[in-house]
Amino acid sequence: MPEEKQHRTVIAVTDGASIPSRKDAGLFTAWRVSFVGSVALLIYLSVFHSDPYFRILKFLPDGIFITFQVTVEAILLALIIGLFTGLGRISKNKVINGIASVYVEVIRGIPLLVQLFYIYFALGRFINVPAMASAVIAMAVCYGAYMGEIYRAGIESIPKGQMEAARSLGMSHSQAMLHVILPQAFKTILPPIGNEFVALLKDSSLVSILAVSDLLRRGREFASETFTYFETYTMVALVYLIITLFLSKLISRMEERLGVNQ
């Protein structure tokens, strides 16, 4: 009997941290070794070599906070931009479709760092936007394009019959999208969006160039005052690693939970 196909396509558009597969079981998974190892190293350095490591660690939390702030704000904005981009990309209206497609092409063709500079200085020519805000906007504009592709793939993974059934009941296109297609696509797009979140968190280190005091920038400030470059960047790298490993795990758990839900 033909079942409605269960689509579990994982869409990897940008390079997030690799999401651990459910199949790697056992005690010594790559994830466990990396996570436990990096936490252990962080604790070891802070306790047994507290000067300068513990001093560095105490200096970083403000930066971690800013990194999270940039990441969360940018991802929320990117989710909205992405939704409209994705809908634009599947739109039959040639103008809307064209605009969305050009946006995706252009953004994907320009390195994020260049986009950051561009938006920061371009915006700065006309209006005085705080560094933090232009950093968030730049990240969101960039990730919105990738997010759009995720939405598009998610929506396209839903069998055509679902839209037809909804429309045949008299629902408008937007009602059908909102109540029938998007809720189903959500399951497919959540894992890649989680992946984007991790990727964005890592890429957010680029905003340190725009005088935003994120994790990397705090590290650089500390290092240049104390000349402990090696020690500081070791700690910065460890903190990034622990955060991204933790988040990747969280996301794969969430994915599993959704997978078994129904």
Binding site: E4, E164, A166, Q184
Partner: peptide
Amino acid sequence: FQLFNVFP
């Protein structure tokens, strides 16, 4: 429809 198209 042939394939029901119920909303899963």
